[in-house]
Amino acid sequence: MHTETVHITPYRAHAWVLIALLALTFVTITVTWIDLSALTVAIALLIASVKAYIVLTNFMHLKFESSLFRVFVGMVLAIYVLVILFTLSDYLFR
């Protein structure tokens, strides 16, 4: 049952990922200095999501796992987003 090929990520790849994440952190801090009012949250969340995506795919190795794992992660996130949306259907329309 243990026949799948092992994927070894080179150190350099991890280093690049780290640099990308640090850069995005820098961007998200810089953006808060500019006043974009309502957009600020959206941009902060967007950048955080990109960072999360990078962590999930690279550090957490999802890129190289079987597609089942990716399907599950997608399903869980979709369910969570739906939970938020359905809850908001109460709060946004009161």
Partner: peptide, 22 residues
Amino acid sequence: GLYWHLVDLIWIFLFPLLYLIT
């Protein structure tokens, strides 16, 4: 490692939502 990355993931969202909303 997966567990540790989870801790990181959560912080990635906590940080902007708590510290950067000034």
